[in-house]
């Protein structure tokens, strides 16, 4: 019981911040001196024209790429010094889905679960149902439409209980129902004190939660 309380206290203290980030690609400065700080329940939306460095920024934030200058801190600790701890708490959905076409929807989620620290209280078929993929449990991903594949990729967010979501254009290919589902998921994540960073052109209508904007 005591452990659970400390765990909850830890959760409340989550913070995600970037200090003076600089990114140079092909001798072009995409951004410099970029910084922000997000606390529990906050959402950061990154906007900007194509080629302005949104994906580069997200890849730097999730630890896939190194910034040319600056540091990213998760709970005040540099993510590159505490990689494993950071990856346990972070989910990244890139603009490519990260699903295998040869595998069925369920098999794709199973492997994602094996790679992550999973939330055992939810079953994978339940997650597929929530994402509107209940009938496609055993359908190979190559036979799914692009919107359904996007939903399958986003389903990865629900198999874990990560505190930080980094999403690159999460609404791409989604229909109205899928978009609403995604907004609901982000709202619920924020309500549960999770932090979300997303790059999208579409307005994210999430009431009652603070949305910070960065224009690249």
């Amino acid at each position: 019981m005591e452990m659970r309380e400390t765990e909850q206290q830890d959760r409340v203290l989550n913070s995600f911040s970037a200090n003076a980030l600089t990114c140079i690609r092909n001798d072009v400065v995409l951004f410099s001196g970029l910084g922000f700080r997000l606390d529990c329940g906050e959402v950061l939306q990154i906007q900007g024209p194509n080629g302005s460095g949104k994906t580069s920024l997200l890849r730097i934030l999730c630890g896939l790429a190194l910034p040319d200058d600056g540091a990213i801190l998760w709970n005040e600790k540099n993510i590159h010094d505490h990689r494993q701890d950071y990856f346990k708490e972070m989910s990244y959905i890139g603009h490519v889905n990260g699903i295998k076409m040869e595998l069925t929807a369920l098999e794709n989620l199973t492997i994602a679960g094996a790679l992550a620290v999973t939330n055992q209280s939810i079953s994978l078929p339940d997650i597929l149902e929530k994402m509107g993929l209940a009938e496609h449990e055993n359908t190979p991903a190559r036979k799914l439409s692009s919107g359904q594949r996007r939903r399958l990729a986003l389903a990865r967010l629900l198999i874990t209980d990560t505190r930080l979501w980094i999403l690159d254009e999460p609404l791409t290919s989604l229909d109205d129902y899928g978009r609403q589902l995604m907004r609901d998921m982000i709202t619920a994540h924020a309500a549960g004190n999770g932090i979300t960073v997303l790059a999208t052109h579409d307005p994210v209508d999430i009431q009652r939660h603070k949305i910070t904007m960065i224009n690249l």
Partner: peptide, 9 residues
């Protein structure tokens, strides 16, 4: 297909 990114993360 982006699986490698997920492996690294």
């Amino acid at each position: 297909d982006g699986s490698l990114e997920q492996f690294l993360l």
